[in-house]
Simulated assay, not measured.
Amino acid sequence: MTDYKKSDKSGEAETIVSDFHMEEDDHFSFSDYKVEDWLAFILFWLLAITVFAQFMSRYIFESPLGFGLKK
């Protein structure tokens, strides 16, 4: 077990020594993402909107969406 506290033998206040180093974040760039990434992102949000709309229509308005499928 490593002790991160070191005390000065002359009676001064204890100092805390840490090896933690936070790396700087890279800057965002749209060019880092490919077509497949954007397609997956769009499909995910379309699915989320569809599920939310179905939930709202079925349980709040008590009338499920049919998405144009009529007999």
Results as ranks from 00 to 15, higher is better:
residue 1 M to S: 11
residue 1 M to H: 13
residue 1 M to Q: 11
residue 2 T to C: 09
residue 2 T to R: 14
residue 4 Y to D: 03
residue 4 Y to E: 03
residue 5 K to H: 12
residue 5 K to D: 10
residue 5 K to I: 11
residue 7 S to V: 14
residue 7 S to A: 15
residue 9 K to D: 07
residue 9 K to T: 12
residue 10 S to H: 11
residue 11 G to S: 02
residue 13 A to I: 01
residue 13 A to Y: 11
residue 13 A to K: 15
residue 14 E to D: 11
residue 15 T to Y: 05
residue 17 V to K: 11
residue 17 V to F: 11
residue 18 S to A: 01
residue 18 S to M: 02
residue 20 F to L: 09
residue 21 H to N: 12
residue 21 H to D: 15
residue 22 M to T: 04
residue 23 E to W: 07
residue 23 E to C: 03
residue 24 E to Y: 04
residue 26 D to H: 15
residue 26 D to N: 14
residue 27 H to Q: 10
residue 28 F to C: 02
residue 28 F to E: 03
residue 28 F to T: 00
residue 29 S to V: 04
residue 29 S to H: 04
residue 29 S to M: 06
residue 30 F to Q: 03
residue 30 F to C: 06
residue 31 S to W: 10
residue 31 S to T: 06
residue 31 S to H: 08
residue 31 S to E: 09
residue 31 S to R: 10
residue 33 Y to N: 00
residue 33 Y to I: 00
residue 33 Y to Q: 00
residue 33 Y to K: 01
residue 33 Y to V: 01
residue 34 K to G: 06
residue 34 K to Q: 14
residue 35 V to W: 03
residue 35 V to K: 05
residue 35 V to D: 03
residue 35 V to Y: 04
residue 35 V to L: 05
residue 36 E to P: 12
residue 36 E to F: 07
residue 36 E to S: 11
residue 37 D to P: 01
residue 37 D to S: 01
residue 38 W to G: 00
residue 38 W to H: 01
residue 38 W to N: 00
residue 39 L to P: 00
residue 39 L to H: 01
residue 39 L to T: 01
residue 40 A to D: 05
residue 40 A to G: 03
residue 40 A to L: 07
residue 41 F to S: 00
residue 41 F to R: 01
residue 42 I to W: 02
residue 43 L to F: 05
residue 43 L to Y: 06
residue 44 F to H: 08
residue 44 F to A: 05
residue 45 W to Y: 07
residue 47 L to Y: 12
residue 49 I to M: 08
residue 49 I to L: 08
residue 49 I to Y: 08
residue 49 I to V: 11
residue 49 I to D: 06
residue 51 V to A: 13
residue 52 F to A: 14
residue 53 A to H: 06
residue 53 A to Y: 07
residue 53 A to S: 07
residue 54 Q to C: 14
residue 54 Q to L: 10
residue 55 F to E: 02
residue 56 M to W: 15
residue 57 S to A: 13
residue 58 R to L: 12
residue 58 R to C: 13
residue 58 R to F: 14
residue 58 R to V: 15
residue 59 Y to I: 06
residue 61 F to C: 05
residue 63 S to H: 12
residue 64 P to K: 01
residue 64 P to E: 00
residue 64 P to L: 01
residue 65 L to I: 04
residue 65 L to F: 03
residue 66 G to L: 13
residue 67 F to N: 07
residue 68 G to E: 08
residue 68 G to P: 06
residue 68 G to D: 06
residue 70 K to M: 08
